[in-house]
Structure formats: structure tokens, C-alpha cells
């Protein structure tokens, strides 16, 4: 019974995809998930299907936000795109070639602190260039530039524990962007921050992204944040076996100011429209749902 409804959902997802996919095929998507299902084996040997039959593509230069209630497998989806998780079924394609192992063309911004606590902000950013065999002196110079770009020029010698949560995120952002990845994967990166810092970080992200547009897959549970940032919002259903239940284009003009855009009438209209879709899933998730 569950399987049946999931299959229907997949069909609906595919149909929705075709709208965007028409142009997509011409340019080649940055990331493409085809019928992706991800399952975990639980302690008792039971299988838990997190997401099922996901079709999702992100174009180069496109900012896609994925929203869904807690436990809908949003992060799981991101991990599949990153190559950190192997899907149980379906395929992940990166710039037209099948993904095997880690996605080397993607940068990943984690929700939790992911900086190396034993390295200064400067070293944390500079070390990201090491795999590309950039000479140390040049790596340090570029790391300084990037820290200045994220507003931390005077904090280069600080260790992560000496920085605030927002500052640590700035360092992580610089660490991710210095490698110039073609795909940015972000897993509720500003989730742990307070409301004001979140807006500031959101604006910083948009500013940096506008200067050098990459494909972005941004996972969040905050619909306002999703609309304010993204070109397209994808809504996931409540888990387990979450699937895509809606896709919405966000046609707000850029450049945007996150704290101002919320006041626009069109923002409200979009919010209402997407929320009516998301609300069902959120209440299902809180009612306990099938889980």
C-alpha cells in the first residue's frame, strides 16, 4: 500500500520534472537524481526507507531549496548527491557522468561544525587547496583573500573555539568556496544560528553566489529562508519513504535582500502557495505519520 502510493508519487514527480527538464537536457544538469531511493538497516535488522523514487535535477547556476518536515530525509538526499551515501536504487549523475565515490565537483556546507578544531581559521581555509597541490604560500594568500571576503580579515589566527557560531560558518563558507566547486550542497547550514545572524549569513551567501553562480542544492526546514534564497523550492513529504510532493518556481527579482524581501506581497503569495503544500506534510510528520 505504501509502495503503491510512493510509485504514484514518483510518477507525479517525473511529470513535474518535465516542465523544468525541457531546458535542462539542452544544457546538461549539474546534478541529477533519477528515481533515487535510500534505505538504512536499523539495529533490529529492519529496513528503513528514508526517501523513495526521487527525481530531482539542478541546473548550473540554479539555486534550488529543498524543504520538508523533520525526518523527511532532506539531508539524506544531499548526502546522496555528495556521494557520501550510496542510493539503494536509482542513479546520481553529475554533469552527465554517473557518480561513483565522492562527488569531487561539489562543495558541502554542513549543519554541524565541521572545521578542524586544531587549525586556525586561516589554516582551515588554506588546507582546502592542498588536494589541488596549490603551493603553501599561494594557498595562504588566497585563504586570506577569502577570509576577507567573508568579513573575517582580522580573525585569521583564531582557532574555531575562539569564534562565534556565525563566524565559524563564515570560515566554513570560505573553506568550501575557495576550491571553486561547481556544485554547492548545503545542509541547513544556518540552522544553528540565531535569527539575525541567519539573515546576515543568507545575504552573504547570495552576494557570493551572485558573483560566481554555481548550482546550489540548499536543504532547510525554514520555508521563508528557502523562498528568500532560491530560484526553485522543492517540497518533500513526511518520512519514511519521503518523496517530492511539489515544486515551485520563485520568480522574485535578484539581487534580493533577505530581510526586506519578506515584506513583499509576492513573497507572501508564494509563501501561502508553498505552505499549503508543506503544511499537510508537517502535520503528518507531527501526528507521527506511518512511523
Amino acid at each position: 500500500m505504501v509502495g503503491q502510493s510512493a510509485a504514484e508519487g514518483r510518477k507525479a514527480g517525473r511529470a513535474g520534472m518535465r516542465l523544468v527538464g525541457g531546458t535542462a537536457l539542452a544544457h546538461g544538469e549539474a546534478v541529477r537524481l533519477d528515481g533515487v531511493s535510500i534505505a538504512f538497516t536499523l539495529k533490529g535488522g529492519k529496513r528503513y526507507v528514508a526517501v523513495e523514487g526521487i527525481d530531482l535535477a539542478v541546473m548550473p547556476g540554479e539555486f534550488v531549496a529543498v524543504v520538508g518536515p523533520t525526518g523527511s530525509g532532506k539531508s539524506t538526499l544531499l548526502n546522496a548527491a555528495a556521494g557520501l551515501l550510496k542510493p539503494a536504487a536509482g542513479s546520481v549523475t553529475v554533469f552527465s557522468s554517473a557518480l561513483s565515490g565522492l562527488n569531487g565537483r561539489a562543495g558541502y556546507l554542513f549543519q554541524a561544525d565541521a572545521l578542524m578544531p586544531w587549525k586556525t581559521a586561516l589554516d582551515n581555509v588554506a588546507v582546502a587547496l592542498e588536494p589541488q597541490k596549490v603551493p603553501r604560500a599561494e594557498a595562504l594568500a588566497r585563504a586570506r583573500e577569502w577570509l576577507a571576503k567573508v568579513g573575517l580579515a582580522t580573525f585569521v589566527d583564531r582557532y574555531p573555539h575562539m569564534l562565534s557560531g556565525g563566524q565559524r560558518k563564515r570560515v566554513a563558507l570560505a573553506q568550501m568556496l575557495i576550491r571553486d566547486p561547481e556544485i554547492l550542497l548545503m545542509d541547513e547550514p544556518f540552522g544553528p544560528l540565531d535569527a539575525q545572524t541567519r539573515q546576515i549569513m543568507g545575504n552573504l551567501l547570495l552576494e557570493l553566489w551572485a558573483a560566481n553562480r554555481k548550482a546550489v542544492m540548499f536543504v532547510t526546514h525554514d520555508l521563508e529562508e528557502a523562498i528568500a534564497l532560491a530560484d526553485r523550492v522543492v517540497v518533500l513529504s513526511a518520512g519514511p519513504a519521503a518523496r517530492i510532493v511539489g515544486e515551485f518556481k520563485v520568480d522574485l527579482a535578484r539581487p534580493r535582500d533577505i530581510s526586506e524581501i519578506r515584506l513583499e506581497p509576492h513573497f507572501h503569495a508564494l509563501y501561502k502557495e508553498i505552505w499549503s503544500c508543506l503544511r499537510v506534510e508537517v502535520s503528518r510528520a507531527y501526528a507521527g505519520g506511518p512511523a
Binding site: A82, L84, L102, N103, G104, A106, G107, Y108, F110, A112, D113, A114, L115, M116, P117, W118, K119, V127, A128, E130, P131, Q132, A172, Q175, R179
Partner: peptide, 28 residues
């Protein structure tokens, strides 16, 4: 695991991980 996954996503090889992640952690 987050620090480790982050380092891997930065493209670090097994040797890089050993040097920048495992070794400092073990030293601590």
C-alpha cells in the same frame, strides 16, 4: 564524523586525512 566527512568533501586523500584529521585527533 562531520569533521571527517568535511575533510573528505574537500578532496583530501587518505594521506591528507591521516595528516590533518586522524593524527591531530589522536595526539589530543
Amino acid at each position: 564524523p562531520v569533521v571527517l566527512n568535511n575533510a573528505r568533501m574537500l578532496g583530501m586523500s587518505e594521506r591528507g586525512l591521516l595528516r590533518h584529521v586522524y593524527w591531530p585527533s589522536a595526539l589530543t
